[in-house]
Design a protein around this nucleic acid. Structure first.
Lengths: 182, 182
DNA sequence: TAAGCTCGTTAAATATAATTGACAAGCACC
DNA sequence: GGTGCTTGTCAATTATATTTAACGAGCTTA
């Protein structure tokens, strides 16, 4: 992932010159020039300063993508970036949507795939989903539920939770959460 | 956003010691120690190396958040009331949730089923969805799109829109919209 | 008890990033 | 042509990050 071109893209999209952004971010224009040429790899703290000058979050920056190709509202499978890791694919619907209010994911769990032995907790928000295929063990606040095709869930993101594919085949969930930031 | 604790959280979730991760990532353990204490702000290139050793993408890392907590959160098919009409079933996930922030529907379109010749427009909100099965013609603001299995959409509810099953078989969409009231 | 391992931390040396101060190219205006 | 402004780039200095090499704490085994 080259930070340089990406930063340049973002900066130009916001119609800022190197010097303008530098002033807002509290760094020098030379820094931006070198970063955009990939001649240095900025420290995270510098990158944060730059993004605050835009402004944009780190998460937005790294999930930033080219503007929509069709009419901007339809997202084909190839246009759904994978936010997951091995055994667990998390395909984001609407990747290029800015300032989103919610996030929809197509979640594909390999047999045995797991969101991790430790549960996940967020500081706010709600999430819901529906099992399209397979068998999922969903643990919410210590309570274990087994979900089959057609079963859904809806819970506050503040509760610790964990997803696990306990079936022999791949499992698929369509999920949505709000607000969009994890 | 403190990188240090975040890195530590991620590293420990993957049950790696500083030295183990250092070896995989091709950096020294001292580097990881200093980063996790926020005594230095790593360069992006170093952070990338570390995440490759886990492995995890930058986007994942920065959208990763603190874990959670809460329950009666699972909804079986028989507990999903139908809000639709003939030819179009709209099954609500999480019917008993109070003061919901969003609404998820399992939408089942009989062949030819239609949300109506007139388009729908709302005063606010966003909606997104994913086609799980079948072929749907989605018209947004006059633009016609044909969606197949795996295709998704995300658009502001203020745009006039219409869904129609143009396939020979039943089509299924999982959708979410926010806020929850139509 | 001591040897041998792992863990995370640290001071000093080295490598890299950020700033300072300058340059040339482009453009507008007179 | 000349002045003044903007743009992005660069060399040398300074500030910061990373490595090297060490330390103490904790644990296991002999």
């Amino acid at each position: 992932m080259d930070i340089g071109p990406r930063l340049k893209l973002v900066r130009e999209r916001y119609k800022l010159s190197q010097r303008e952004l530098a002033k807002r971010a509290g760094v020098t224009n030379a820094t931006i020039s070198l970063i955009e040429q990939n001649r240095v790899s900025p420290s995270v703290s510098s990158l944060v300063k730059l993004l605050e000058g835009i402004p944009m979050s780190l998460a937005d920056f790294f999930t930033f993508d080219e503007p929509p190709r069709e009419n901007g509202y339809v997202f084909r499978p190839g246009e759904q970036p994978d936010l997951g890791n091995s055994g667990l694919r998390l395909l984001l619907v609407g990747a290029t949507v800015q300032n989103r209010q919610m996030r929809m994911l197509r979640e594909l769990y390999a047999p045995g795939a797991d969101t991790g032995p430790e549960t996940i907790t967020h500081s706010e928000g709600e999430e819901c989903g529906l099992v399209v295929r397979g068998t999922i063990e969903l643990t919410i606040d210590g309570q274990v539920n087994v979900l089959h095709t057609g079963d859904g869930y809806y819970f506050p993101s503040t509760l610790p939770h964990r997803f696990r594919n306990i079936g022999q085949e791949e499992a698929e969930i369509i999920s949505a959460n709000t607000p969009a930031n994890f």
